[in-house]
Write a protein that binds this DNA or RNA. Structure first.
Lengths: 138, 138
DNA sequence: ATTTGACTTCGAGCGCACTCGAAGGTTTAA
DNA sequence: TTAAACCTTCGAGTGCGCTCGAAGTCAAAT
C-alpha cells in the first residue's frame, strides 16, 4: 500500500485554501515542488499537507510571506540549517507572544470602556450628570 | 487657565502618528472636526487626544477603519446611540478575545515544533535516526 | 526677507497577500 | 462527444491603511 496522495483540488479542500493559493505558494517557494503523476498533475503527500499546515499556522500568527519563505529556504538547505530554523521559530515565537500581550493590554482598556458604558446604560443620567465619563471623546 | 491645546505636529508626536494620519483620520470621519485657532490651524484638546488614543487602541486590536468609522458616527449621534456603541464595543471585545485564543492555539503548535527542534539540536542524530520528527515537511 | 509650519484639494503610489481570469493545452471518465 | 479537472504563463485587479508629494496659500517668528 503506497501512501495516498491528493489532487490539488482535494488538497485545497482539505487545507481550506484555494487551488490558486496552493499553486501560488509553490510558485513563490513556500512549498517545495510538488511531485507529479504520469500526466504532470500535482499529487500532494501527507508531508506536503503538513507543510501547508505549518505555513498556515505561521500565517495565522502573523508571519509575513518573506519570513515563511526564509523558513522554507532553510528547510531546503537540509539538516545543516536546523539551528537557523530553530532561531527563526524562536524569534517568531517571541513576536507572537508580544503580540498577544499587546492585544491583552488593549483589550483591557476596551473592557474598561465597556464597563463605563454599562454603568451609564443602567442608570438613566439625571439633569445634573453630564455623562462625561462616557468616552470623553469616543 | 484655559485647557492647553496642541498643534497638529505636537499632537502627532504625542500620539506617535504622522500629521498625515491625523488629517486623514479627520478627513474620513474617524475624528470629529478639530477646533481651529484664529488662523485656521488645528488645536488638539485633551479630548481629541483621548479620541486618537481610543482609535489607536481599536486599531491595535485589529478593528478595520470601517468599524472605527461606525463607532465615531455613533458617537456623533449623541447619547441616544450609547446602546449601539456598547454593542459595537462588546462585539469587538469578543472578536479580540477569539483572536487571542487563536494566536495562543497556533503558538502552542509552534512551541511544539520548537521543542522537537531543540531535541534534534542537542543530540547529534546517528545513522539510524533520520530526524523525521523535525518538521516532516517544514 | 526668509524660513517654518500651518492650511487646502487632489490624486498617485505602496506593500501585502492574495485572487482571478484569460488563453491555450492535455488527459480521463461518462 | 463532451465535460471536468488538471496543466502552463501571464498580467491585471482587489482591499486595506496609509503615505506622500504637488501646488498654491497664509501668517507668525527670526
Amino acid at each position: 500500500m503506497s501512501a495516498p496522495t491528493l489532487s490539488i483540488q482535494q488538497a485545497a479542500t482539505h487545507s481550506n485554501v484555494s487551488v490558486h493559493t496552493l499553486r501560488y505558494y509553490e510558485r513563490i517557494g513556500l512549498l517545495p515542488p510538488i511531485a507529479r503523476d504520469a500526466n504532470g498533475q500535482r499529487r500532494y503527500t501527507e508531508r506536503d499537507l503538513g507543510a501547508v499546515n505549518t505555513l498556515l499556522r505561521l500565517r495565522a500568527t502573523g508571519m509575513p510571506i518573506q519570513g515563511m519563505k526564509r523558513f522554507a529556504e532553510l528547510f531546503a538547505q537540509g539538516e545543516g540549517a536546523i539551528p537557523e530554523r530553530l532561531a527563526l521559530l524562536e524569534e517568531h515565537q517571541k513576536a507572537v507572544h508580544q503580540r498577544i500581550l499587546e492585544l491583552q493590554t488593549n483589550l483591557e482598556a476596551i473592557d474598561g470602556k465597556i464597563k463605563i458604558y454599562r454603568k451609564n446604560t443602567q442608570v438613566i443620567p439625571d439633569s445634573k450628570s453630564n455623562s462625561r465619563g462616557v468616552g470623553g471623546s469616543l
